[in-house]
Write a protein that binds this DNA or RNA. Structure first.
Lengths: 158, 158
DNA sequence: TATTGTTATACTCTATAACTATA
DNA sequence: TATAGTTATAGAGTATAACAATA
């Protein structure tokens, strides 16, 4: 049973420690996304937004009136964990929890004017961020990357 | 200042709550990767491996003799957090911390025979997982996705 | 003095259960 | 009974500081 002794020279000509791992698309995508996320977080920090609060605000602006459960589903977070995100946005007067007359358990999430303005500004900065970070790819490559990723999201079954 | 009242019908014809967000490659990639990761985690659970311990083991097998600091850099984790990962793999006798004669502060990370075997088996399963999860894409699309992601990793500067 | 591995710790994220008020 | 929002909590994951051994 292998209690190997350090073998100083064998295999050391291989300079890439990721060799096998980078054969996997999932690994390459993970590393690529971590580069994107670093710049994305920097971009959103100007607005004191995290990725998830940016997404939440954007969705509330794009589709006002959703309940917290619906928004949690759209964001793929537990509805218990959405509470703090909504608290954060509502505390900054970017959205409000409006009562729903027909069902008093529910809150209709509505953007305020300030929320719409911040969402628009942040979205413009995120668009700049994407142009910056993906600037090393050609327009064709960016479009192809989006197309393939969208197809994957739509078609993947596992 | 906008204390908007729920506007029951306006905008409700829009059925996709992600509308603006899915214009961003980063958003699409995040969602795509979360699909991949779910199946990846399922695959590795057969071997009682997490993503990070699979990566660590794979790198130790591919390039034996690295120190913990070098491996931490390769994995992009803090070296303090690598300790537990190495403890886990060493506790299962998959790798060993071999002493380095020239510098007694360092450990040379070496795979055991069992570690090499588990890495090979897990890597085969991960290859199956990739074929399964990306089966909805054509071979050309998968190759193109890999090519673009690799170019991005190599070229991205931000 | 600086570096390697380590410990301790704190902060964020995520997941689950249980509560309340409403239906 | 069931559902929407909430609270509490536990488990990961991640980041920082400080320590002992060694260079």
């Amino acid at each position: 049973m292998g209690n190997n002794i350090p073998d100083a020279d064998a295999e050391l000509e291989k300079s890439d420690p990721e060799q096998h791992l980078s054969d996997f698309i999932g690994y390459t995508m993970t590393r690529a996304l971590s580069i994107v996320r670093a710049d994305f977080a920097r971009t959103l920090s100007e607005y004191n937004l995290r990725a998830v609060s940016f997404s939440a605000l954007s969705i509330v602006v794009a589709k006002p009136g959703q309940t917290q459960t619906q928004l949690a589903d759209a964001l793929q977070v537990e509805r218990s964990n959405l509470v703090g995100i909504i608290d954060e946005l509502a505390g900054r007067n970017l959205i409000i929890r409006a009562p729903v007359a027909k069902d008093r358990r529910r809150h209709a999430l509505m953007p305020t004017t300030a929320g719409k303005e911040l969402a628009a500004a942040a979205q413009a900065s995120v668009a700049d961020h994407e142009n910056r970070v993906f600037g090393c790819l050609t327009k064709t490559e960016r479009a192809e990357l989006q197309r393939i990723l969208r197809k994957f999201r739509k078609m993947a079954t596992v």
